[in-house]
């Protein structure tokens, strides 16, 4: 399987799930801090100590953050003014603390290769994943994770993810490419 463990010096990019966990940990109140393990914060601090860089995020995660805002606006839940304000706050903060890895031409080729192969060879697993989602599990659709993996590989970054789905996706990487994967769990 073309999966490598990440080393302390490997440049890392967070997937959207870890990014969301980080958001949750950052917004936790003082009372909750006493009993909740802030595992993403701990791992990021450890990573920073080794590399003196902050983990990157992909343009896909940026898209997901922006989508959430505009979705609320399109549905009439927030005003255009509020949507712009939230969008600006989030984008400015993210741009300052993270390198944003773009979904480039190399990434798009890798993503297309994986997606085509998975649709043929992992139909059963994809259906199961879809059913899980319908039952209320907020798991991302596979193409979102494929875009994130391919962006990480295209820029020679290791990927941080909390789940093993990334390993299944990585089985369908084009020959000669490896995914450096760090699984961070509470």
């Amino acid at each position: 399987m073309p999966i490598l463990e990440t080393l302390p010096s490997t440049p890392l990019v967070l997937d959207t799930a870890i990014f969301t966990h980080l958001k949750t940990e950052c917004l936790i109140n003082e009372a909750e801090k006493a009993y909740k393990k802030l595992y993403v914060k701990e791992r990021i601090a450890e990573y920073y100590s080794n590399t003196k860089t902050f983990p990157a995020i992909t343009s896909m995660t940026f898209f997901e953050a922006d989508f959430g805002i505009y979705d609320q606006f399109a549905n009439g839940s927030i005003s255009e003014e509020k949507a712009n304000e939230f969008q600006q706050n989030i984008n400015l903060a993210l741009a300052e603390i993270s390198v944003i890895l773009p979904f480039d031409q190399r990434a798009s080729k890798i993503a297309a290769y994986i997606y085509a192969h998975m649709l043929v060879k992992e139909q059963k697993w994809l259906q199961q994943r879809k059913t899980k989602k319908k039952k209320g599990n907020r798991e991302a659709k596979i193409w979102q994770d494929i875009f994130i993996i391919s962006t990480a590989i295209s820029h020679n970054y290791g990927l941080v993810s909390p789940d093993k789905d990334m390993e299944i996706i990585a089985k369908y990487l084009p020959k000669g490419l490896d995914l450096s994967l760090a699984v961070w769990k509470p």
Binding site: K23, I44, F54, G68, N89, I90, E96, Q144
Partner: peptide, 28 residues
């Protein structure tokens, strides 16, 4: 540096209620 980093991250969601944050960060 880490304190500042996490503060900046939290500040991005300043002024939003928990429900709003949840809605905004729901995956598309």
């Amino acid at each position: 540096v880490m304190d500042k980093y996490f503060n900046l991250f939290s500040n991005a969601f300043e002024g939003l209620t928990n429900e709003q944050i949840e809605a905004l960060t729901q995956r598309p």
